[in-house]
Amino acid sequence: MTMHLKLRVWRQPGPTAAGRFVAYDAPDLSADMSFLEMLDVVNERLIEQGEAPIAFDHDCREGICGSCGLMINGVAHGPMRGTATCQLHLRSFRDGQEVVIEPWRAKAFPVVRDLVVDRSGLDRIIAAGGYISARTGGVPDANAVLVAKDDADSAMDAAACIGCGACVAACPNASASLFAAAKIAHLGLLPQGQPERAKRVLRMVSQMDMEAFGNCTNIGECQEACPKLISIDVIARMNRDFLRASLLGREERVGSSGEG
């Protein structure tokens, strides 16, 4: 079955250039195309006409790399729940439907071009504390460190975060709380994450604030937008860790960057 969509796409030639919506008629599409394949087809037609193609981020196209992400008709990653933009198919749309496509909008995510935004703010949150320090050496036995099954499952649920930024995009406050909290929960639930647990939450939250992300108002838009359906329970956990580290944690020595 062929489909026809009426696109309204945000076009912005560069970071400092003014952007605007441009209407594109997209006939002869297949309902089985993914949303990104549809954009590929539109781009090929644009190139044939000698126009600049629409820039958008993508990589694995199987929902696990976190590169893609578009605001589609006012919903981050579009109408299909628990799905990244690349795994969204045109069968989720009506024939002849108008589709508004916008980039993630946040001060911390400046537009690079068209639908591509710079999400390195999320990388800096990870660099601030989203890691563990482990000594190198011989490989330990597989079960040397015991992890309760429930904890392993919860850590795995949090670790499902692919860093796409949909939580920021869907949050009315452009808060990165779900992202940071997922990383903090992922490491904090495991024994290997314990030594740096207090430092981690303080540093990552402080970096999140510095990156000009907004604050969390607990309204839950992020967990609905998350392609991995990460629950805002992890945000409560981050708040708990932050509170404990603030009240009971030792002050960091000035100039100390050493870990462990």
Partner: peptide, 11 residues
């Protein structure tokens, strides 16, 4: 929070 989203979504 307002400063964190300087450009509003059209939709």
């Amino acid at each position: 929070a307002r400063a964190a989203r300087p450009t509003a979504y059209q939709r």
